[in-house]
Write a protein that binds this DNA or RNA. Structure first.
Lengths: 187, 187
DNA sequence: CGGCTGCGGCTAATGCTATTAGCCTCTGAG
DNA sequence: CTCAGAGGCTAATAGCATTAGCCGCAGCCG
């Protein structure tokens, strides 16, 4: 091994801090390199290119989220689990709105795998409702769509009215829980 | 007036067609100019810069969406109105997935106004549930979050499993309608 | 009918971006 | 002590948005 110096993980850390502080649009290799105290091309020794850096950041974010949510859901019952899951998710977005904006749903297997981890946690939380596998998949997708949509819109500041976002989110949680409890009549 | 030639609207049209055919990532002034049969800097005679072009595209998209949805909702009852609204929204995304990915929620007043038009239609559709204004705002936000989240995830191809997306969407509609019907207990 | 004004095109130039090539140095293993 | 390679560097390239400045033609005014 050569000098201590940088590593892929360190670059991702620097990039995440940059995004947290200056917004997703400020993510540029030059800016990351500058923060890392290194010349721009040096980053290529640790990361294949900007796209890969983005993917690695997304993986890191999803892993953070999965860890938090996993802990929050642990040992909770069905409805309470969903509530905890959704609350924790939103807390993360409120804490790091820029970071959430930087999330990318690339077709990279790396990112897909990290996403799968999140989905698995959701699936586990839904098991308690006594759904079969197919139903659980559909329910997970809805849960994900609702949370992700809310998160994206909030991170983009798309909710302009003065009404409290917390109350809106309470309603969203209510909608999800009620929708899961009330069976869908079969056609 | 000089020659017939281009106009801001025409540039937006060309850009939308480009995005439809080649994806949101292909949106570049050079590509738009080439399609319009004009040199790149000429676009600046019609559009202030790339950001404005993006905003104008978003406005156009939201207007399209508002028109369709407005027509779909017209003369329908509460639940049926919501179902029609959500179905129509998704049809648009399926028809133009790249276009939806190109949607930007800029803080530009122009875009905000177009978004407001969409929100107003949703609000109107929710009136039938006998909510007061505040409740209706919260409900609209939830509706929007659910639809937008689903749309974004679908446009980004984030749903990988073989289960039919149509069925998932049916469940989402069900969740929303049920959630709106079941009153939220007051704390 | 003739000249002027400005719209809408153009070319050239700038500065930022990611990315590649090729060099050099210091580290740590043998 | 040697030497290979990890990890830094500078220099160079190509594509991007954007700006400056020029030029021709259309239509209006006299």
């Amino acid at each position: 091994m050569a000098r201590a110096a940088l590593s892929a993980g360190a670059v991702v850390d620097v990039a995440l801090r940059l995004v947290d502080e200056e917004g997703a649009a400020a993510l540029t290799l030059a800016a990351v390199a500058s923060r890392a105290g290194v010349a721009t091309p040096s980053l290529y020794k640790h990361v294949r290119n900007l796209a890969e850096l983005r993917a690695l950041m997304s993986v890191q974010i999803m892993d953070d989220l999965a860890e938090r949510i996993g802990a929050a859901v642990l040992g909770r019952s069905a409805d309470e689990a969903i509530r905890a899951l959704m609350t924790t998710w939103r807390e993360y977005v409120v804490e790091h709105p820029h970071r959430y904006s930087a999330l990318v749903q690339a077709p990279e297997p790396m990112v897909a795998r990290a996403g799968q981890r999140l989905v698995d946690i959701m699936l586990a939380a839904l098991r308690a409702y006594g759904m079969d596998d197919t139903e659980a998949i559909h329910a997970t997708r809805c849960l994900r769509a609702a949370m992700h949509g809310f998160a994206v819109l909030q991170a983009e500041n798309a909710f302009q009215r003065p009404e409290k976002l917390d109350e809106t989110y309470d309603l969203l949680i209510h909608m999800v829980v009620t929708g899961l409890r009330t069976p869908l009549r079969r056609t």
